[in-house]
């Protein structure tokens, strides 16, 4: 853990100072019209305390499946995107060397 322990107090102080300052600034969002509108119209999500009619084991498994999909799908799509971009770059540089 030598990399973590090296001058950790100073570095952690800076990280916390920046994060707390940013957090305090973010708390100012509740003074915006956006916040006032949402507070007036109200907000609720989920099933409001009623138990969904699914097997109990799924109650524990489904949230993790949701996370894996929400993380995994963009990950997979970005990897495909990077592969396509790299392929196009390689092809264009190959064409340049061929004709130039």
């Amino acid at each position: 853990m030598k990399y973590l322990q090296y001058r950790w107090k100073q570095r952690l102080f800076i990280v916390l100072l920046v994060s707390i300052t940013m957090s305090i600034l973010m708390m100012g969002l509740e003074l915006t019209d956006w916040a006032v509108n949402i507070n007036q119209t109200g907000y609720s999500h989920g099933n409001n305390g009623t138990k969904p009619n699914i097997p109990p084991i799924l109650m524990y498994v489904l949230p993790f499946i949701k996370e894996i999909i929400l993380i995994g799908v963009p990950l997979f799509l970005t990897l495909i995107w990077i592969k396509i971009v790299n392929k196009i770059k390689r092809m264009s540089s190959h064409n340049k060397t061929k004709h130039g």
Partner: peptide
């Protein structure tokens, strides 16, 4: 979550 997925892909 999707932001994390893209972050992981960029450092894949």
């Amino acid at each position: 979550m999707p932001m994390l997925g893209i972050h992981l892909a960029l450092n894949w």
